[in-house]
Design a protein around this nucleic acid. Sequence first.
DNA 1: TTCTATGCAAAAATTTTGCAATCGT
DNA 2: ACGATTGCAAAATTTTTGCATAGAA
Lengths: 134, 134
Amino acid sequence: MKAKINPRLTSNRANIFKMIEEAATPVCVDTIYLELIKTGNKLNLSTVYRGLDCLVTKGLVKRITIGEDNRFFYEVAGLEHHHFLRCLCCGLILPLEDCPIKEYEKDLSKKTDFIISGHKLELVGYCSSCSKGV
Amino acid sequence: MKAKINPRLTSNRANIFKMIEEAATPVCVDTIYLELIKTGNKLNLSTVYRGLDCLVTKGLVKRITIGEDNRFFYEVAGLEHHHFLRCLCCGLILPLEDCPIKEYEKDLSKKTDFIISGHKLELVGYCSSCSKGV
DNA sequence: TTCTATGCAAAAATTTTGCAATCGT
DNA sequence: ACGATTGCAAAATTTTTGCATAGAA
């Protein structure tokens, strides 16, 4: 993408951000797009993509991958470090606050001689609704 | 895909499997395809995709996602449970044998009322080669 | 004016599918 | 002959890009 010197936070982009902010879980591009259209906004899908790029560049939004769907999700940046628990049945994504592998990272860094900058943990299973009567 | 009653392990598929088996890390479709072509095999990319579907269905191969590239990787199924450490610079993927979150899973299951069936952990950073002189 | 944002269409990248031909048993 | 595989081309999905136009500072 062409480098813009001074990207603007247009109303489209503010709306995209608001939508992400208000969602309880990470959202993907078509969810954002459809939600904005449904609530009366008129904008193009590519505007959503470019708006997201802009928000990511500005550090307002984080682009992440969850699940096995090969597409991107977005969440507000600057949240506490967290992980996800995902329901394989209904797709529910539950953010988790605690992180069980902080010390492990240190050990691993020593063992592998990697500088470890981060990690991604995703647990999967079946939520209580979906596992009722199983 | 159309359900085949009795999928066959053709030589194409055996070659695909062998390639995956011999790779030290998970491989993606185009790596498999190019490697097979380079070693003298003649086959179509869609044959690779279908062959992989077949191997996954047969339980010989596992389809996984690593990194932020929105594409699939494949590894031999039936390996010990493991995770990955990935270099953000050169793309090196290092399989890890130990798993630091087995007990965490139990706790979380109680706390969230999920039936937890698995998890995916990926650590990222810079390998010793890439971080030399940084 | 000058830089940026947008819509639209087209292209890219990865994966899937339909169909006719071929192969294996 | 029958069912499965393959090549090829086309489609589907998600994301990116080029270009002309509209918009904001």
